[in-house]
Design a protein around this nucleic acid. Structure first.
Lengths: 152, 152
DNA sequence: TAATTACTTTACAAAAAAGTACAGTATTTT
DNA sequence: AAAATACTGTACTTTTTTGTAAAGTAATTA
């Protein structure tokens, strides 16, 4: 289970903008702040822009900025913009081996695991705002202790 | 956030063996059952074997089998064998851009997010056994409804 | 003991992801 | 209007992951 480079660095760019209190940052600024190349920062911000998460202004006084207050973004929407979710309906088509259908399709326990798992992850990501993440004001403690796997 | 092919197919191989009630399966059998090539099945089972999750017998009556009852494996140990965890101490070294240190190192909110997140995932994976997964006898329902993100 | 079946190992090929280079367009400043 | 700054878009290279090929070793069977 892995976080892609796009997700990692994309989130960081969002955190940079969030800490900037609604102000805009140029690509050179973001690039230097995160230690990534200008090109790569450009790629990341373009993805975020196309997803509608940031807005851009061209020209000399230009730069990127959040389109809404950091407290109104949740981590799920940021991740959705940067990559595929852990589970989606195409899961079994993607991992079907050479067989026409997923061999687990009749009673697909594998799919169920990812589907349920994905719900948990989305649940958590959906409840942490970008502002929370930027300031560290969130606490997963209660959640962890409350984890209980029941029997159907 | 993605599940790698090794994790997906590796887990499926374990599920095949688990459904076999402790009996052994040959590579050709596993390969055909999952629709993956013989070579690839061999690679997967070798990884699982080196991690100590399965045992192998060579020769004509050979094959692979679980080393313990399916109910004594949890999904976490299976995933640990097949790939890196979502978060590990090398996270910031891996994603540090061109800078000597992760730019978030002082007050690394990114790292904290993955660290906490990873705990949740491990918590869930650690509570589902291979036997549960094979039969579908687990329920994340309670868990989902109990998710609460607090404030530090 | 030779043939067959099956695991083991190494090396390689193909595909996907990560990251870079560069030419272009828009806006502002001088 | 020319220069400077900054976003935009495409094409490319590198690296990692995925998957395959083939030769080798071990055990069994006839």
């Amino acid at each position: 289970m892995k976080v892609s480079a796009l997700e990692e660095y994309g989130l960081r760019c969002m955190l940079q903008l969030a800490r900037n209190n609604g102000g805009s940052m140029t690509l050179p600024e973001i690039s230097e702040a995160e230690g990534v190349s200008l090109s790569y920062a450009g790629k990341l911000l373009m993805i975020l822009k196309k997803a509608g998460l940031v807005k851009a202004v061209r020209g000399r006084q230009g730069g990127y900025a959040l389109v809404k207050p950091a407290g109104e973004y949740d981590l799920k929407e940021i991740f959705d913009a940067l990559g595929e979710p852990l589970y989606n309906p195409r899961h079994c088509r993607k991992f079907k081996g050479d067989l026409e259908k997923c061999v687990h399709s009749k009673d697909c326990t594998v799919r169920d695991i990812w589907k349920e798992f994905s719900k948990i992850i989305d649940g958590v990501l959906g409840k942490v705002t970008l502002a929370d993440a930027a300031s560290g004001d969130y606490d997963f403690g209660d959640m962890i202790s409350s984890i209980q796997v029941g029997i159907k």
